[in-house]
Design a protein around this nucleic acid. Structure first.
Lengths: 341, 341
DNA sequence: CTTGACATCGTAAACGTTTTCGCTTATACT
DNA sequence: AGTATAAGCGAAAACGTTTACGATGTCAAG
């Protein structure tokens, strides 16, 4: 049986209130008494019952994070890094982190409702925002504290951190155009995802600005995995004439494209330029190393966590809207000049 | 203000006890009364306060999972998949999942002590077991429910799921020897990690059995990342003469080795055989596709979670020790016969 | 010597449930 | 008609804290 405040109080001949005060550092208890209590607590290995504390304080000291998983084989280096950032930051502030993994849709919303209505957490982290995002609408309508990684087309503003995918893809596309590419294909993911929507817009803007036509033949939609990138890459390489460059919405997809090129006997870096987005660590070790746009995933995890705690503890966030610029990392996968026609 | 049992009871002119019974499905309440209560609860959008439930039941309905992170840039596809398996299984049983991310060592132990002593969770999942594992000793000495992914050199047995790395590496090494390789290098990770210890033993056993010498020159220790694999690969390729095959303790490392070969102008698949362990999804898309040993990570996540719940709910586990055989997946990275001398 | 301020501590309510126990009433059996 | 049995329900304790409030005692100022 674990020792409680009662046990301590009885042992010392004082009241539970005094013990509680002494241990929490509240004022109104003599220094000598406090010393006795603290010593006894130490000796008896007293540990507070967090369940009781939480019920009393009506706070869980916990934040929630529901990871949208796509398919059973959910293997995404992006999330482990984000999770590490969030988890370590939460630990610094002595907050617990409640994680759920749910595929987007019905079940996911149920998970959100559980967290909110049953008050399992004090706040939530939302990632992979969608253009029309029911999760965000729900949280807003319930005035529940949350911070998002990604923007969304909502009426009301909400605190977020995002990476400027439009500007990033614009720069990347521009880079390829400058290298002489004219047939630049693009592998997108579901347009319902906000980041995907922004990224392809940057691609289109760069084409437009260069006076290049937007060719629907060169756009393919894929799922967010390397396997899907492989398939999309194969499809694109069968176009007549094939593209000279392929931009993928994410690094994972781009790695799949490189696999596809390999399987078609196409040399990435000399026959075909490939680029991605994220700069996961495998990007620099790919064959050849992959040109990409770097976003500081770990730091973003830390930041959204810190912002959420700010919101929970102080009620407001000093800097609630943060748009980061991704850094263009040019590597060998795009580093050759395509002969102009 | 959220509605409580009291509110419902007052509204309906019954006692809280009856409302509680009606809603929990306990016997001793008339069908008609139950119907009225359930209807009212629905109408008033009653949601139980889990904090109060937990304090009363002295159970958290939560399991804990402390992820050992190595370095700030923690990008490991292995963990996202394992986490998905655990998380989805926990959701099926309506259990919450509390996740911490801590680098191994002091801080990690503190996280374990918090979880156990402050009763934040009903049970714990332990992964990446170490040969001498203080976490397991601690949990055993406190009789705290847990299940491990991986074995360890402990006095007392404990429930675990593991993949037979020794047998796996033996088969893989044997495969390379059969292909004619004689100078087979091995990149290991810290021998303190149980799985690493087992895997290299399999390698040694295969060498021994084939009458090949164990050459310390051909063994390199690395960290568990692709970057570290890159460095280790470079180091091995500078040996005189260089190895004709390199086995890496994990796929992530193997992918790094392939990057290193690339940077040295060595053709993987024809000049050098490379193999890994895990079969992460990128392995099949590597250049060339990577020979590896497959372990069903997602399913293992599900299994350890289910076993832990079995332990918590029933007090015992039907099949507490499970050793799975990894499947050798031969791909192009080792699929050539090395000319015998 | 009285008054007020202050320090120290205890009492008790509160947080929202679950569950034991006992009471009443209705039903069945002798 | 009387008694055992069970069904339906309420009162109250319990889970382990925190905290508002009140009680007591001490001491300095008037």
């Amino acid at each position: 049986m674990p020792v409680t405040l009662h046990d301590l109080a009885r042992k010392l001949g004082v009241s539970v209130a005094t013990v509680s005060r002494a241990l929490s550092g509240a004022p109104g208890v003599a220094e000598e008494t406090r010393r006795r209590i603290v010593e006894a607590a130490e000796a008896m290995q007293y540990r507070p019952n967090v369940l009781a504390q939480r019920l009393q304080k009506q706070r869980t000291d916990t934040i929630g994070f529901i990871i949208p998983t796509f398919g059973p084989r959910f293997s995404d280096p992006f999330f482990s890094e984000l999770l590490a950032g969030i988890g370590n930051e939460a630990a610094v502030h002595e907050y617990d982190l409640l994680v759920s993994t749910r595929p987007p849709g019905e079940e996911e919303m149920i998970a959100y409702e559980r967290m909110v209505q049953e008050r399992r957490v004090d706040g939530l982290l939302v990632v992979r925002t969608r253009r029309h995002d029911p999760r965000i609408e729900y949280l807003q309508s319930h005035h529940f504290p949350f911070v998002a990684f990604g923007r969304c087309e909502a009426e009301e503003p909400f605190p977020y951190v995002d990476v400027d995918g439009e500007a990033g893809m614009y720069r990347l596309t521009h880079h390829l155009i400058a290298k002489g590419h004219r047939r630049i294909a693009y592998i997108t993911v579901s347009d319902a995802l906000m980041f995907s929507h922004y990224r392809i817009q940057g691609y289109r803007r760069a084409l437009e600005e260069a006076g290049l036509p937007f060719d629907a033949e060169l756009i393919v939609e894929a799922g967010m995995s390397d396997e899907e990138g492989f398939r999309a890459g194969q499809a694109l390489l069968r176009r007549e004439p094939p593209p000279t460059a392929i931009i993928a919405a994410t690094d994972l997809i781009a790695l799949g494209v490189m696999g596809a090129a390999e399987s078609c006997g196409v040399q990435v870096g000399s026959d075909l330029a490939v680029a991605g987005f994220d700069d996961i660590s495998l990007a620099s070790l790919a064959h050849p190393p992959l040109t990409t746009l770097r976003q500081p995933i770990y730091a973003i995890g830390q930041t959204i966590c810190r912002m959420l705690l700010e919101r929970i503890l102080q009620g407001t966030i000093a800097e609630p809207y943060r748009l980061l610029q991704p850094e263009l990392i040019v590597r060998a996968s795009t580093d050759f000049v395509y002969p102009s026609e």
